[in-house]
């Protein structure tokens, strides 16, 4: 009964949907028809971006209402959400993950590190930014980016 009471007393916590973000919907995402399966890849992040991604999919920001959903295998995924500077050890797995996804596929680089290696640029273990390893379609700047920014980027893929 505790669960039912919790549901009743909590009510709806999702924030009202902000207006549709500016910018064109990605052309290759049109085929997806508004339903996007997302696979997260941590290519060497400090885990800050992971916390924000988790927040983007929680009940408050609720990215799922716009048609984005997290999955556990690149075989099921349309979008790879890549965080962190790409370390040497993660370069090959990242390439393989993207190669394992079906067409059409998109890569979203989340966070400053993913865009330009951020704080870790020039580190001995860093291979480079995500764009150096796999082609990137969308970037979400910020260190770490706010959940709204991540949701807005995903909405540009789903078009909803």
């Amino acid at each position: 009964m505790g669960l039912l009471r919790k549901i009743r007393t909590t009510g709806r916590v999702a924030e009202p949907a902000p207006p549709r973000p500016e910018g064109q919907v990605q052309p290759s995402a049109r085929q997806l028809g508004g339903s996007v399966q997302v696979r997260c890849v941590d290519a060497g992040s400090c885990n800050g971006c992971e916390i924000e991604i988790a927040a983007a999919f929680n009940p408050v920001y609720d990215a799922e209402r716009y048609g984005a959903r997290q999955v556990a295998s690149p075989r099921h995924a349309d979008v790879a959400l890549v965080t962190g500077p790409v370390t040497r050890n993660m370069a090959a797995p990242l390439r393989r993950t993207v190669a394992a996804m079906g067409e059409p596929r998109l890569v979203v680089a989340v966070g400053d590190c993913a865009i330009n290696c951020g704080e870790f640029a020039g580190g001995y273990g860093v291979e480079g930014a995500v764009a150096d390893v796999v082609p990137v379609d969308l970037a979400v700047p910020g260190c770490p980016p706010e959940p709204e920014a991540i949701v807005a980027a995903l909405r540009r893929v789903t078009g909803r």
Binding site: A92, L94, R96, A100
Partner: peptide, 11 residues
Amino acid sequence: RVNARLWDCGG
């Protein structure tokens, strides 16, 4: 049909 490598969790 596309022939792809077996998914091995990137390992």
